[in-house]
Amino acid sequence: MMKKNILALLLTTALSGGAQAETVFVTLEKDNALAVVDPIAAQLIKTVDIGSRPRGIAISPDHKFLYVAVSDENTIKIIDAETLKEVGKLPSGDDPETFALNPAGDRLYVSNEDDSLVTVIDINNKKAIKQIKVGVEPEGIAVSPDNQWVVSASETTNMVHWIDTKANAIVDNTLVDPRPRALGFTADSQQLWVTSEMAGTLMIIDVKTRQIIKTVKFDVQGVTADKIQPVGVVIDKERKRGYVALGPANRVAVINAETFAVEKYLLVGQRVWNLAFSPDQKRLYTTNGTSNDISLIDLDSQAVTKSMGVGTYPWGVAVKP
């Protein structure tokens, strides 16, 4: 016991010594609030009211603004990342949930699930400039780091739609496993990783050909297949490892990004949904919907080192350096 405490203390010291002070923002779907966390000190700094049913969250490339989809108010709010005050609203269309920013930070792409649309928003002018028809129940959405593609996944159509960012139009589609949920590009924009909630799989798509080159099936010992519902997916900058949140399986899968082998499953909180790296990519944060906490995964040791209570139904996560 004593030893463990000392170890924990050492670890904490080591982490706080080595890490930049960063701030983690977590949307709390049922508290209608935003949790502000100091992850290194493992402290909930404060909780601020944000509006009805906040879900998707992103931070601008200059880290000055947070964008929060406030689903029941049918808008995406712009929040000053320092003062946490609302400074504007974006016309997101109905019931915004997930959205993606382009690398320049001047376009925001929103999935409108009930209307089978993707809305393109010009952030500077706070205007919707285009609505693109996609498949039924669009959910996951991502912009490629080279800004060539916006990809939208339709949960019921079982497709990812490739939208050319210049034309704002679909130019290709790839059929994937049932109920695709989340998407993540590799930093080199060569691969798109797609999770299928219902098949319990991760598909790796080659961006050039837009074809699936590998399907990874998750299988956790002692967990029934129906509980393995892959959602959030992120890949590190070096394309060494990818991480997939497995929902009610309460685990994050660690995938070797070269061989696509699953290296391990890390036990986190309950119904783990979304993931975000620390700016230096030494840590990974997970939102655990039904245990009301977030977990910190130390990526050097590939181990869960902390969990922090944040509030009811943590949904989305964004990190500010």
Partner: peptide, 22 residues
Amino acid sequence: SSLTQLAISFLSVIQLLAITPT
């Protein structure tokens, strides 16, 4: 080359999933 191998081993999957352009 490993990618190519993968591509070959999953050719059947690809054929099944390949769809005509929009």
